[in-house]
């Protein structure tokens, strides 16, 4: 406890140094980036970084453009990614509000909730996208009307169409396995829907919940032994480690169905998937309506994208000795004949 004043001074200056360093980083990085001049400001907050959410964002910017809001001309767009950190998410929104954004776009459920929570105090409209269940997230009321000055688009999985497709490709299959992460609420609601609908197509669903990517190899091994095929959700944790699942499935000769085009590209047999880019465009157009003052966000019910299409991979089919029916190939939005590594 007792130390001579010189030592105390040194300790204090070290602490100060730490604080100064931190501020220095902040100021330096501030010099690097500046965009000024445009009238309207829009903040886009994205919760995680992966293909479908990036497509959403690019689509959103394109949708705004189609409606006459061009980045750098009449609007300034700020983009921040929370990297799946809840604390950062709310900080990002505070920052958007401080910058005077007239609209905030929240991509994925937790980001949308953070945006709504902070923006409602100042009545700044929030437009969300890639929220699977806006009602469960309390961004919309049970009847589908907005819960406040917030609306957007939902990326509900086309579960029925996916099951129908699997039945067509595998007429004799009984069980479908699903891997999901227990901390992703979207996956849990999707699984419930799968379980409800599976019976209609003569399937049983066997699910296996994991907590981190490290659990995937063991969980996948366990699942392979019990099922005829596997179908993927849009589960961020599982999708980010999809190559591991695919490798194990190929070894076991079990087909894996995906939930979007990117997954089919890298080795899923097929998928009835959403086009996240057009989901983004649709969202961008909704945002433009609000910006133009045609309607308030609280007057627009959220929209669910309906345009799902089949994507197939013939190279995977060949490897597994499965033929994808011609009817599916003909109706496909895209068919790949190679497996992207």
């Amino acid at each position: 406890m007792k130390s001579c004043s010189q030592k105390g001074l040194r300790k204090r200056s070290l602490a100060l140094l730490g604080a100064v360093l931190m501020m220095g980083t902040a100021v330096l990085s501030g010099c690097a980036k500046k965009s000024e001049g445009a009238t309207l400001k829009i903040g886009i907050g994205q919760f995680a970084e992966h293909g479908s959410l990036d497509n959403c964002r690019n689509g959103f910017i394109e949708g705004l453009k189609e409606a006459g809001y061009i980045e750098g001309e009449n609007i300034t767009i700020y983009y921040e990614n929370a990297q799946t950190d809840g604390g950062t998410a709310s900080q990002i929104v505070d920052n958007f509000l401080e910058k005077g954004c007239s609209l905030i776009c929240g991509i994925a459920t937790p980001m949308a909730q953070s945006a709504y929570s902070a923006a409602k105090k100042q009545d700044v409209p929030v437009i969300f996208t890639a929220v699977t269940d806006p009602i469960a997230a309390e961004l919309a009321n049970a009847d589908g009307t907005p819960a406040g000055n917030v609306t957007g688009t939902s990326d509900k999985l086309p579960v029925q169409m996916q099951l129908e497709m699997i039945r067509e490709v595998m007429p004799d299959a009984d069980t479908i396995g699903i891997l999901y992460c227990t901390s992703e609420v979207n996956s849990i609601s999707a699984i419930e829907e799968y379980k409800e609908a599976a019976g209609d197509y003569g399937f049983t669903i066997i699910e296996n919940g994991i907590q981190t990517t490290a659990d995937i190899p063991l969980a996948a091994d366990g699942l392979m032994k019990q099922v005829d095929c596997i179908t993927n959700l849009t589960d961020n944790t599982v999708v980010s480690c999809l190559p591991i699942v695919l490798e194990k499935a190929t070894e076991a000769g079990i087909p894996v169905f995906g939930s979007e085009v990117e997954q089919v590209k890298i080795g899923c047999l097929g998928a009835v998937g959403l086009d996240y880019y057009s989901l983004g465009i649709q969202t961008g157009k909704m945002a433009a309506q609000v910006l133009k003052g045609e309607k308030k966000a609280e007057e627009i019910p959220f929209e669910v994208i309906e345009e799902a299409a089949f994507y197939g991979n013939t190279a995977v089919a060949k490897k597994l000795g499965i033929t994808i029916p011609d009817s599916l190939i003909e109706s496909a939005a895209q068919v790949f004949d190679t497996i992207e590594q």
């Binding site: 902040a26 990085s29 501030g30 690097a32 970084e49 990002i92």
Partner: peptide, 9 residues
Amino acid sequence: AIRFGLPSN
């Protein structure tokens, strides 16, 4: 740090 444009990444 965020305010002055430090990328959240």
